[in-house]
Nucleic acid binder design. Structure first.
Lengths: 190, 190
DNA sequence: TGACAAACTTACTAACCAGTAAGTAAAATA
DNA sequence: TATTTTACTTACTGGTTAGTAAGTTTGTCA
């Protein structure tokens, strides 16, 4: 018998990576098991169904995001530094490793994933948008951000372009994603 | 024996829809066959492998796009009307039918699709970007579009946000996509 | 009318998939 | 030390997958 160290956490880490690299329909319990050197059933012991595994990945990510934005190291930043921090999430350790964001990955396969997982994705996407919108409002009031229209719409545009930009980087290279981020900043600060 | 009318074209139409609704890993030859009332092997007769089917869908879409942009009804439009036409591709018959764009769908599953299909996706994405960039340059020179930075970067931002916006609409509703398009126009024309 | 090619069907394979039930080894607990 | 719980393995199921080989029907053309 092979014991996995920190089994649940290790499996969640692998599943999160696989979701971002291969998509929900692009990986199997066998992938995770063989990489960890255990059998399929060992994964099912911790996460009986693939839906539960997917939900656990997103739920953990949601909790992590709330911890981040409520942490003084982010909360107390100026609006433009907050935005830089947010862009950094996508630049560091996403585009460099050929990953796309969880939300984009699961929304492309939305019509083929279990309902419970769909709900989790919806919640995460709303939370990301809410924080972006609040940050945009804060920055516009402080006179750092300049844009026309509703903060909610600007937030939707920014998040969508980051999501699509990571996917574009897959086919066209990471410098394309950098161009998107630079353009976002130009459109927001100039 | 059941004969399919315009077999190849009908299969391509179905495959294109399925790619946009379920993704490459989310549909099978059996799906297509059963919906057409024929057997699996009938699909394999026309498209021996799934890679060939996928490539044919993208190639046809690329040809169609070149026909469109070289048609006087698009070519002779003013830059802002051209942009409206382009946005319309995404709004009409995409977001309304719960579809995402082919490029986004296949780039999310990029690491799990055959190489020949990857190349086709890359080519399509480059062609879309090239047309957008040229249109942005034309519009800026004409004084209709206003933006800072390189047209190539602005093109990448616009295309990424449309791509991501369609996916967002899956989880959060079509009005979110409309908000993205409206914001894009605001940022370009104001 | 006969030959041939196009468009299928039948019947199959080998691989993979998520998921389950029953058994085992080791660690925690009483 | 005995008992129970945790974390697995073994062995399996039923379903789905892309793909193939050989046979059949139908329309076209000489």
């Amino acid at each position: 018998m092979v014991k996995i160290a920190n089994s649940k956490r290790t499996i969640l880490n692998m599943a999160e990576d696989l979701l971002q690299v291969k998509g929900f329909n692009g990986f199997s319990y066998a992938h995770i098991a063989s990489e960890l050197g255990v059998k399929n059933a060992a994964i099912h012991y911790h996460f009986p169904t693939k839906e539960e595994l997917g939900r656990a990945v997103i739920k953990r990510y949601r909790d992590r995001f709330q911890l981040w934005i409520n942490n003084p190291r982010v909360k107390d930043l100026s609006p433009d530094k907050k935005m830089d921090w947010f862009f950094g999430i996508y630049t560091d350790g996403r585009v460099d490793e050929g990953k796309v964001c969880l939300v984009g990955s699961l929304e492309v396969e939305f019509n083929t994933i279990p309902e419970g997982l769909q709900a989790e994705v919806e919640a995460l996407h709303n939370e990301l948008l809410a924080w972006l919108q609040a940050t945009l409002e804060e920055g516009r009031q402080a006179g750092v951000f300049h844009f026309n229209g509703e903060p909610a719409s600007k937030a939707a545009l920014i998040l969508s372009s980051l999501q699509g930009g990571l996917q574009m980087a897959r086919a066209l290279g990471t410098q394309k994603f950098s161009a998107v981020v630079e353009q976002l900043k130009l459109d927001l600060l100039a």
